[in-house]
């Protein structure tokens, strides 16, 4: 019987409920004094890992490792991950250069972790809500030469170490099957993540967290992209009102929408 050793990468991002603001020098989004939380897609990954464990009575999931590369504060996010059910955590401290890690660098870092920690399943969010790059999972699968299933809305473990993943695609669903090892990226309808209960938060404080630095890995973290300027989207212009459906149709025709 295949035993799952799962890696769940998580990212500390601006909380989804916060309205982001551009900083004064227009180089990035302001993060100081802003509430930060776990990337919501990563919550889905973690929840799915825990549910894989809970769905199968036998000890099919032997280990859930939560990983984060980010500032020291990312350790809070990892504690949350452990309170939600990860067994242990690995933090790679990036100092203040959090925003400097591009998807390829993160994917290379994850490859090192996958090899070093002997993982056979990586479940990660399809994107992080700050950069919205949506690339890391695919790049990691490419670097590892593993099968990948992106935008998962359902994950089933089959006999013989295979996964069946239902993916959300334009116009419907696509069902794929592959043998482990595998990379899965998660989409919003996969599950509804639990919140960490206070007793589990207390227990998470006793779970092991390994701390490393970027320099512990032999990877080139050079930036390939240069941010020239960050600007707020133009404010939305108010729409017009129409009296009835006929007026609406006339107006839509005027605008060339019909």
């Amino acid at each position: 019987m295949t035993v799952l050793r799962i890696l769940v990468p998580v990212k500390r991002v601006i909380d989804y409920a916060v309205k982001p603001r551009v900083n004064a020098s227009r180089t990035a989004v302001e993060t100081t004094g802003v509430k930060m939380s776990m990337n919501p897609f990563d919550e889905l990954s973690l929840e799915e890992s825990v549910r894989l464990r809970e769905r199968h009575t036998s000890k099919i999931v032997s280990d859930i490792l939560a990983f984060s590369a980010g500032p020291t504060k990312a350790q809070d996010t990892l504690r949350t991950a452990m309170a939600m059910g990860a067994d242990r955590a690995l933090h790679v401290d990036t100092g203040t250069s959090e925003s400097d890690l591009e998807p390829l660098a993160v994917a290379k870092l994850l490859r090192e972790v996958v090899n070093g920690e002997d993982r056979n399943l990586v479940i990660l969010g399809k994107q992080s809500i700050d950069d919205d790059s949506g690339q890391t999972g695919q790049m990691l699968a490419g670097l590892l030469g593993w099968s990948q299933a992106t935008q998962a809305s359902k994950v089933e473990l089959l006999e013989g170490g295979r996964l069946r993943v239902t993916k959300e695609v334009d116009g419907g669903e696509e069902v794929v099957e592959a043998a482990l090892p595998m990379v899965v990226t998660t989409d919003l309808r996969l599950n509804e993540p639990r919140y960490a209960s206070l007793p589990n938060i207390m227990k998470a404080k006793k779970k092991p967290m390994e701390k490393k630095k970027l320099s512990d890995y032999n990877i080139e973290f050079k930036k390939r992209l240069e941010t020239i300027q960050v600007v707020e989207p133009a404010p939305r212009k108010g729409g017009g009102k129409v009296e009835n459906v006929d007026d609406l149709i006339v107006r839509l025709k005027e605008l060339g929408a019909l």
């Binding site: 209960s197 206070l198 007793p199 589990n200 938060i201």
Partner: peptide, 16 residues
Amino acid sequence: SAGFLGITAEEEYGGL
């Protein structure tokens, strides 16, 4: 289940 109901109670009975 969130753990709010026994903030001051002993752990052995489910408190914090």
